[in-house]
Design a protein around this nucleic acid. Structure first.
Lengths: 184, 184
DNA sequence: GTTGAAATTAGTACGAA
DNA sequence: TTCGTACTAATTTCAAC
């Protein structure tokens, strides 16, 4: 975990420097580094690029409703859209969320109305623009849980008190109101 | 752009190998590499970590409605939540979208109902679970636009045909219907 | 899991095209 | 701006412990 913590902040650090920061020997660092890569815990190393400086100043989220039994086609179409940076299948009102980077607002409009709308698998879309990216952490690690808290718990083995079947995937405010009623 | 293309796929490549792949001299590669870093085009290098293998198998999106004039406090609270991987301010129904990685569903529930709900700046939340991350590209580049298309356009200087003030930030299906009516 | 030396590679400087 | 090259510093590998 310590190795991962260092590497997500500085992916180009030398293994020797990594060893020193983690507090192990160089040879050990090489062994563990290679093991993490082979194991797949580290998927790849990448450069974070300033998309604004690269000429893609507009970021948008497109929430997509996918026609049932056309998922395979939807995924195939996604693979052919290089402007898509991220796509996740979600629960809730929509089926998928897509994040795109474009040069300007008009390009987003064109993408959604011309390209996305012509995909048969796409039933409907809802577009939202990103005004500001407040934070992007390289990747969250389990050890982050205790960081930033004033009082750290001794990692109690908290059981899943709320059964999954009882959860409501809705707004928290609404959920709290309902719980209050139920609880009395 | 070529350098960025290589670097986002392999952030740990040596500058010598980078020079060869891009087709420039070693010395030139060092110069440009350093310039890209100094300029801020490359923000940092990072390791992509498999969060499932790291013990954080659940990913969720929390859409947050923020109380007006409490943005500063909201951002301050965010900084103290290490489980948040990404946060963006958006247009549309909600004010912000937060992506979190947690060990299990119960942990997400706890985060939203116990921690988030106790932040005065948070008026309401809506949680959605990510079932599958279809794709995550390191960072999209302008050169990606033409890739993956069967017919590539000669990069015409397309003007912004649709004025921003005329755009409707709503569902595309709805938007198309409206345009049909307007257009006749 | 550690240390230390050999082999290799990376980073720097500078003149020329 | 870019290239080639020579030089110095650092990294990686590999061995014994």
């Amino acid at each position: 975990m310590k190795i991962l913590e260092v590497l997500r902040e500085n992916g180009r650090i030398s293994v020797a420097a990594l060893a020193e920061r983690v507090g192990i020997s160089r040879a050990n660092a090489y062994t563990r580094f290679e093991a993490l890569r082979a194991d797949g815990a580290i998927k790849r190393f990448t450069a974070e690029i300033d998309h604004v400086r690269a000429g893609l100043g507009i970021t948008a989220l497109v929430f997509v409703t996918v026609r049932q039994q056309m998922w395979k086609q939807f995924r195939a179409e996604l693979a052919r859209m290089p402007e898509v940076e991220y796509c996740a299948i979600t629960t809730g009102q929509h089926d998928a969320m897509i994040q795109v980077r474009m040069a300007d607002v008009a390009a987003v409009h064109r993408l959604v109305t011309e390209r996305m709308a012509n995909i048969p698998a796409v039933k409907a879309t809802e577009t939202v623009f990103i005004l500001d990216e407040v934070l992007r952490r390289p990747y969250v690690l389990p050890t982050d849980r205790d960081a930033g808290r004033t009082a750290r718990r001794p990692a109690a083995p908290e059981p899943a008190e709320v059964p999954l079947g009882k959860m409501r995937f809705v707004g928290a405010a609404e959920g709290r109101a309902a719980l209050r009623k139920e609880g009395g």
